[in-house]
Design a protein around this nucleic acid. Structure first.
Length: 219
DNA sequence: ACCCAGGTGGCCC
DNA sequence: GGGCCACATGGG
């Protein structure tokens, strides 16, 4: 246990990775779709799906609201869980179209309104909702995923057992600067991907703390 | 032949 | 509140 804090972690990670430009995606609509497709799935699998949707000329909420589910399933097959995810993408797209029109319109709404709206869609849970709020709708919400829970728990944040607790902690120490919050989550995911997928990678961790920040399960 | 990946929801206790 | 389970593809 390091007994460190979020601000030190942010500083250390920023020193290594700088601005992460998270989330990857050309448009807000694409970020919304990617947030659903990436649930428990590697990004490389998601990218193929996104490319197929783009090539089909369907990468917009308005277009996706009208596709046949079977068509969508074939486009997103590589992302797995396609029965559930196709339903979620369709349902969300139709609800956005009917209630707000476009993502740009949606961004004018209050954060709590959007939270109620998003969490009501089957297949959108806490993390997917937060990712959409932060990266597509530009609301200052820190995105907590499994990596973040483990990492913050590991560095000694006293109570890092739930998403809500970690979010509250990060906001209380780091505030509500949108770009900073966007980057912090990106830094954590980049760090995890680069250095925490195997023992050898742990050992070349540029933070020079080996697994003190480890996400790879121990040692 | 395992294990995991930028989760979610349902069911059980 | 927590512990399991199904959902599915693709890479290590």
């Amino acid at each position: 246990m390091l007994n460190s804090d979020a601000i030190s972690l942010y500083r250390d990670l920023f020193q290594v990775f700088g601005e992460t430009k998270w989330w990857p995606g050309d448009t807000k609509d694409e970020i919304i779709v990617g947030a659903i497709l990436t649930q428990n799935t590697t990004w490389s699998n998601v990218e193929r799906s996104l490319a197929r949707i783009r090539n089909g000329g369907l990468m917009s909420i308005s277009a996706l609201a009208n596709v046949e589910q079977n068509t969508l399933i074939e486009l997103i097959r590589s992302s797995g869980f396609y029965n559930q995810k196709s339903k979620t993408v369709l349902e969300l797209s139709q609800r956005i179209r009917d209630r707000f029109g476009t993502i740009e319109q949606m961004k004018n709404e209050r954060t709590d309104t959007l939270q109620e709206f998003l969490i009501d869609v089957p297949g959108i849970g806490q993390e997917t909702m937060d990712a959409m709020l932060c990266y597509a709708l530009d609301k200052p919400i820190f995105v907590v995923d499994k990596y973040t829970l483990r990492l913050l728990g590991r560095i000694g944040v006293s109570d890092a057992s739930t998403i809500a607790q970690v979010k509250a902690y990060v906001h209380s120490t780091m505030g509500y600067d949108l770009e900073k919050l966007k980057n912090f989550h990106g830094l954590i995911v980049n760090f995890a991907k680069e250095y925490c997928r195997s023992k050898p990678k742990c050992e070349i961790c540029p933070l020079q703390r080996k697994c003190d920040y480890g996400l790879c399960g121990g040692n």
